[in-house]
Write a protein that binds this DNA or RNA. Sequence first.
DNA 1: TCTGGGGTCCTAGGACCC
DNA 2: TCTGGGGTCCTAGGACCC
Length: 416
Amino acid sequence: MRTIMHVDVNSAFLSWQAVYNLQKGDKVDLRQIPSVVGGSQADRHGIVLAKSTPAKKYGINTGEVLWQARQKCPDLVVVPPDYELYIKCSDALAEILKEHSPLIQRFSIDEAFLDYSGMSENFGPPVPYAYALKEKIKKTLGFTVNIGIGPNKLLAKIAGDLKKPDMVHTLLNQKEMAEKMWPLPVQDLFMVGRASKKKLNDIAVYTIGDLAKCEPEILKYKLKSHGILIWQYANGLEESPVHEGYNLIMKGIGNSTTIRFDVIDRKTAYKVLLSLTESVAYRLRRVQAVCGVVSVSIRTSELNMYSHQRKLFNRTDVTNEIYKNVVELFNEGWQGEPIRHLGVRVTDFSSSEFTQFSIFDTKDIVKKQALDSAIDRIRNRYGNSIIKRAVLADDQFHAMTGGMGADEYPVMSTIL
DNA sequence: TCTGGGGTCCTAGGACCC
DNA sequence: TCTGGGGTCCTAGGACCC
């Protein structure tokens, strides 16, 4: 029997921001007052990214638009996000976890699994160990975590969610599952979202227990293969290993952005797309991969979203090659509506080490690759903005658009 | 004054081949 | 010349995660 722990930072962005502000000398602890971390409304990024416990009492939810949150709580304190800080905090947490187990898996910026199997002999039973770990994190880093313990990753994760903050929970066996997990509303189960909840409620399945006792055939009819998956989860069945999931398993890289204003002309759209492509291609090269598929997504001012993708004849990691396809895809796809949001994504990777080029333009490609790698080196050394495309020189948009710090812990949505 | 941005996986339908 | 059928590849869209 394995023993897995799931470590989850309580209100991660908000806690980290609170700790940082206190260190800076602020007198108020954001965690003690109604506060949220939220984007800039002027830039049309105005949603709640994380909330304090007092803010939660006003009914404020993550993902909610800021003006709505302010209506619920007029005195709400809103602080902007600082992603670099969060990545540092996440790394600091990972360092502590690595001291406590040879095998950890970073699952998202604020979550990790720790394999405690076979460690009891030397380090004692898991529950006291988890309490000690939790206290150590609080003492050294200043923020609290929840730790869930179970025989697999799924039960460890659900246990960690039971009651927050600053707690340790177990879901170790059938009895604990029946007592603690089965009474929960079905949408609390990992992989049951809005659409599944509705379909399940239609057949009178309201709790995780209801789902567990369901006939799998009925679920398969209603929810296809997903029905079988969540039935297994409801019964605590899940066996994936804790693995150090790094770059090798990245399936795609994408960046997207909501633009400060609606874009109505091609030329402006091209600038945004170029800036996005710069980030995507840079990240692609950083994981030493070439891509075989490029895709462009468009969200209109009416919030309709559509995308257009294409398989390439030759895989590439060259910024200009990817951009050429991005522009063509945009031109084929765009229906002419005002554009709120644009995205560029690459998928279908293979290793760039052994890439075959078409016999036609090898020389040209080699030259372009040399240029890209020179630019990458300069940017690594002096910062991303040090080199900028001439078409972006008017400073309407950045040299590169999109986050680049989370390559190491992609969230695995189905295979925990 | 109007809802972010980063991912993975699954499914359906059409094109194409045999 | 006609309405069979299996298989693969490609693309678009939806559902889910944090």
